[in-house]
Design a binder for these strands. Structure first.
Length: 390
RNA sequence: GUGAUCGUAGCUCAGUUCGGUUAGAGCGCCUGGUUGUGGUCCAGGAGGUCGCGGGUUCGAAUCCCGUCGGUCACCCCA
């Protein structure tokens, strides 16, 4: 038996309807809001993510699917979507400001568990170009409208992490603080002191809790401009009656963020999406000097929280005579009626069972020239005019 | 990368402790009949490299080692 590749998923059976529901809702909503759907390649140069996500991030150091193609190029299966959108924008749309939405597979090599797979789908939106606080606001506002349509009760957590320079200064202070308190830190956190100091802050380890709670907060190191922006954004949210929770420990996994970071938490405390501002990403990639703000949702995380979606076919065409079946198919097709039918000419009882299983409303019997309402159990002579009126 | 746990029919599982005829059940599927109060019922049937590889043994679904995969947690993250 050849089994599936570890961490990949087959979207089939009950998942199919959920997947399509999430995808259609996302694309329709964001397209109504004016975001242009974009599909970028699954393959990108490794360099794109080395530079954008940052060499200190685990995504780059451990989790990328890397491959060399036959021309010797260093490629990766994309681990996230923002970098590709920004690459596209710089190449084909540089001087404009655009809203983009995307939907598709991302790849990260890590051990699978609930809500985390090696190939997973992200639904994302970006505003790239010349942007301001209103751009930040609408990414959050549009995201909340989308996610609360699927998962009511999902809430916003928000933070500002200041400029990249602020963060560098803060990391230095934090490094000194943790170095002085090394003996109180857990082994896991000790490993992070040199390369990933910031991440010690969101350790769940009980040993670390006290030392973290007394650590200097980033708040003191954030420049006044960033602070003012954050406060105006919070005012915009207040005015729109959007609830939020400020969480100073909210840092994102990707290095390119500055100022705004946010996450969406469901009632079950699952983080189904997150995003932030990335004003320096184009500069980091040396492809331009424009800004951006974006969001990404974990499609499987949303799917795992949806209750079962039942799909039904309104009409089911039944028959044990192939000529009768094809005759009725022609009539129905010509009148643009969607209907289901048996995969082959099987026994009548089996066809009837299938029609019931698929929650069909009407059963067209090609052998008897009748149509039966399966809810009221009334049978009458088949008449295409009656169907067209349904 | 680390740890726990599982893998027997399409699905859910029994059998594994303590090795022993031909590996079972329910559901689903197929055929014939029955049924128009049509999902029922009756009869028959198909379907299994016991995840894979190696080892121990007269003999392995069962014991040992390895490996692949599922689930969950840590790390990390959407």
């Amino acid at each position: 038996m050849i089994e599936q590749v570890k961490g990949t998923r087959n979207i089939a059976n009950d998942d199919s309807a959920k997947f399509l529901h999430v995808k259609n809702t996302f694309i329709n909503k964001f397209s109504d809001y004016g975001y242009k759907y974009i599909q970028t390649p699954l393959l990108e140069y490794k360099e794109l993510f080395d530079k954008s996500i940052g060499e200190s991030s685990e995504i780059v150091t451990k989790q990328m699917y890397e491959l060399k193609d036959k021309g010797g190029r260093d490629l990766v299966l994309r681990p996230e979507g923002t970098s590709s959108v920004v690459r596209y924008h710089a190449e084909f749309n540089k001087d404009n400001t655009s809203k983009y939405s995307y939907f598709g597979s991302m790849f990260r090599y890590e051990n699978p568990q609930k809500n985390r797979y090696r190939e997973f789908n992200q639904a994302g939106a970006e505003i790239v170009g010349l942007i301001d606080i209103y751009s930040d606001f609408q990414i959050i506002n549009d995201s909340l409208n989308f996610i609360n349509n699927l998962l009511p009760g999902t809430t916003l957590k928000i933070n500002t992490i200041g400029s990249i320079e602020d963060r560098e200064a803060y990391v230095k202070v934090l490094y000194e603080y943790f170095s002085k308190n090394k003996e109180k830190l857990s082994n896991e956190s000790l490993e992070k002191i040199e390369n990933n100091t910031l991440r010690i802050l969101d350790s769940n380890n009980s040993e670390d809790r006290e030392i973290i709670s007394n650590a200097p907060t980033i708040n003191e190191y954030i420049n006044t401009h960033s602070k003012e922006n954050f406060e105006s954004l919070l005012r915009l949210l207040d005015n729109s009656q959007i609830n939020y929770e400020i969480d100073f420990s909210l840092v994102r996994g990707l290095d390119y963020y500055n100022d705004l970071t946010f996450e969406f938490h469901t009632e079950e405390s699952v983080v189904v999406g997150g995003g932030g501002r990335y004003d320096n990403l184009a500069k980091i990639l040396s492809i331009g000097d424009f800004n951006g703000v974006g969001v990404a949702f974990g499609v499987e995380r949303i799917m795992n929280l949806l209750s079962e979606i039942k799909i039904s076919s309104k009409y089911y065409l039944l028959g044990t005579n192939i000529d009768n079946l094809t005759k009725y198919s022609k009539i129905l097709d010509e009148n643009n009626i969607n209907y289901n039918k048996p995969s082959r000419v099987s026994k009548e009882n089996a066809q009837f069972k299938e029609a019931k299983k698929l929650n069909a409303e009407y059963l067209i019997n090609a052998d008897e020239d009748t149509i039966k309402n399966l809810i009221t159990n009334e049978t009458e002579a088949f008449d295409i005019e009656v169907i067209l009126e349904h």
